[in-house]
Computed example of a mutant assay.
Amino acid sequence: MAKEVNQPMAAIGEYETVLPFQAVGVKPYVMSEEESGHFESLLLQLAREKYAVIFVQEHLFEKFMSTVETVNEEYAVSVLPIPGLKGSSGTGLKSIRNSVERAVGMDIFAVK
């Protein structure tokens, strides 16, 4: 039988976007665009605390892309973009395409 591992998950973003995650055991961190100055330190703190997955609202994910990439490479955590109330800007799909391209060596989603 596999050993059960219980690593926490978090969601960072605006109140209306991250609060529903609490219903499934994800710890919400409310952060508006105006408060985004604390995003990088919060993301690094959660990575150091060994969170398994950190969901980040797209506007923060895009604004702090270099920090997100650093955390994804240096820590055993997955930082994933989630759309806000205004809908998706396509960041999630771009992130998946880039990850698959790095792993496989080519864009397998490309239309010929």
Rank of each mutant, 00 (worst) to 15 (best):
residue 3 K to T: 14
residue 4 E to H: 14
residue 6 N to D: 14
residue 7 Q to L: 10
residue 8 P to C: 12
residue 8 P to H: 11
residue 12 I to M: 05
residue 12 I to K: 01
residue 12 I to T: 09
residue 12 I to H: 05
residue 13 G to T: 04
residue 14 E to H: 08
residue 14 E to Y: 01
residue 14 E to P: 07
residue 18 V to W: 08
residue 18 V to I: 13
residue 19 L to A: 11
residue 19 L to F: 15
residue 19 L to S: 10
residue 20 P to V: 07
residue 20 P to Q: 09
residue 21 F to I: 09
residue 24 V to P: 14
residue 25 G to R: 09
residue 26 V to F: 03
residue 26 V to N: 10
residue 26 V to C: 06
residue 28 P to C: 12
residue 28 P to E: 05
residue 29 Y to I: 13
residue 31 M to I: 02
residue 33 E to M: 07
residue 34 E to A: 09
residue 35 E to R: 07
residue 36 S to V: 01
residue 36 S to Y: 01
residue 36 S to A: 10
residue 37 G to W: 03
residue 37 G to L: 06
residue 38 H to Q: 15
residue 38 H to E: 08
residue 38 H to V: 13
residue 39 F to I: 04
residue 41 S to E: 15
residue 41 S to C: 15
residue 41 S to F: 14
residue 41 S to N: 14
residue 42 L to K: 06
residue 45 Q to M: 09
residue 45 Q to I: 06
residue 46 L to K: 02
residue 46 L to C: 02
residue 47 A to H: 06
residue 47 A to Q: 05
residue 49 E to L: 01
residue 50 K to R: 04
residue 50 K to N: 04
residue 50 K to F: 03
residue 52 A to T: 10
residue 52 A to I: 06
residue 54 I to Y: 03
residue 54 I to R: 00
residue 54 I to S: 00
residue 55 F to R: 03
residue 55 F to P: 05
residue 55 F to Y: 15
residue 57 Q to G: 04
residue 58 E to L: 09
residue 59 H to Y: 03
residue 60 L to E: 04
residue 60 L to N: 00
residue 61 F to C: 04
residue 61 F to A: 00
residue 61 F to G: 04
residue 62 E to P: 08
residue 63 K to T: 00
residue 63 K to N: 00
residue 64 F to P: 01
residue 64 F to S: 03
residue 65 M to T: 11
residue 65 M to E: 15
residue 67 T to C: 14
residue 68 V to L: 03
residue 68 V to S: 00
residue 70 T to D: 04
residue 70 T to R: 13
residue 71 V to C: 05
residue 71 V to F: 06
residue 72 N to I: 10
residue 72 N to Y: 08
residue 74 E to R: 10
residue 75 Y to A: 07
residue 76 A to R: 11
residue 76 A to W: 10
residue 76 A to N: 12
residue 77 V to H: 06
residue 78 S to D: 15
residue 79 V to A: 04
residue 79 V to T: 08
residue 79 V to D: 02
residue 79 V to G: 03
residue 80 L to H: 09
residue 81 P to N: 07
residue 81 P to W: 00
residue 81 P to G: 02
residue 82 I to D: 01
residue 82 I to N: 04
residue 85 L to I: 11
residue 86 K to G: 14
residue 87 G to C: 09
residue 87 G to R: 02
residue 88 S to F: 08
residue 88 S to N: 11
residue 88 S to T: 06
residue 89 S to K: 13
residue 91 T to Y: 00
residue 91 T to E: 03
residue 91 T to N: 07
residue 92 G to P: 06
residue 92 G to Y: 00
residue 92 G to H: 02
residue 93 L to P: 13
residue 93 L to C: 11
residue 94 K to C: 10
residue 96 I to K: 13
residue 96 I to P: 09
residue 96 I to W: 13
residue 97 R to N: 15
residue 97 R to V: 15
residue 100 V to H: 03
residue 103 A to P: 05
residue 103 A to T: 08
residue 104 V to M: 12
residue 108 I to E: 06
residue 108 I to T: 05
residue 109 F to S: 10
residue 109 F to H: 11
residue 112 K to P: 11
residue 112 K to H: 13
